[in-house]
Amino acid sequence: MRPFDYQAPADAGTAVAAVAARPDAAFLGGGTNLVDHLRLGVAEPGLLVDVTGLLPTGISDDGGGLRIGAGVANADLAADSRVRRHYPVLARALLSGASGQLRNMATTGGNPLQRTRCLYFQDVTTPCNKRSPGSGCAAIGGATRQHAILGASEHCIATHPSDMAVALSALDAQVEVLGPDGERTLAFGELHRLPGDAPERDTVLEHGELITAIVLPPLPVAARSDYRKVRDRASYAFALVSVAAALEVTECRITDSRVAFGGVAHTPWRARRAERVLRGATPSDEAFHAAAAAELADARPQDGVDGGNAFKIPLLTRTLAGTLRDLARQEA
């Protein structure tokens, strides 16, 4: 771990200016991912700017939705009664991630920005285009059980590890950002980017831009929503696949839905094709499988020395069907 300087400015504007001024500066939030990366040598900043004391830590009603300060701890967000009642998919996603201790540390702004848990990305002795652009991708042809089946490129097959981000993707959240040039708001679905030929960039945020809040719109369909995370061991593990889903059924027809996948792409994967297939359909395993098939039509599994990840296609199909089946039953 190389030496670095540390600053704890009094306000967000100063923090943004401090990071923007140095190419090797980084924001430090809960630290659950960045401190890990410092120790692994994955990140080598020269300056850490601590934003834990200055980001808003409140959750406020916002035109029927919720404005969540970027400093709100994951544990506090999952415990909020409004989130539990109106956005259960978000509470479940948060609670299925990491451990009690980590959820006490991790923040609303930091969680969606955590970086891939690709084994090779985290191991500085192997080539990785995300960590060291142009060095190659050791994951391709390696151990690929946890890697992407959607939206990958020849340069990177990593997956996004956040559970929370999958729920936010399904919920049409907005992200409020403060940068050196002022504030801007973007749709959560625009935050993350596919790897393409620049996998070193996880998001569209520019250097020095800081997430200050995440806003959940009023979304009646979300009252009946759930997050289903599939993993080998029962807790404290990243998803092999996950499904965030919300379902509204009126007179035996699906009138609205939200579906997003985790563990299968470089981004939380909003399944709009699946949503289109579901609209107007009668809730049934046939319809759910058709929705999955539409979304996974372009899925490209990876071979690997560990057997690869082709299993994710049937696994995700069946997980989606099971999740929607349970939600449809809740409806009835």
Binding site: Q146, A237, V305
Partner: peptide, 24 residues
């Protein structure tokens, strides 16, 4: 998970070498 191309165990930590947790 031993990667024969590199000659090392690539899941060389407790997040990816899964020992049973309390919930298991």
């Amino acid at each position: 998970l031993f990667d024969p191309r590199t000659g090392h165990v690539v899941n060389h930590d407790l997040a990816e070498y899964h020992v049973p947790t309390q919930a298991d």
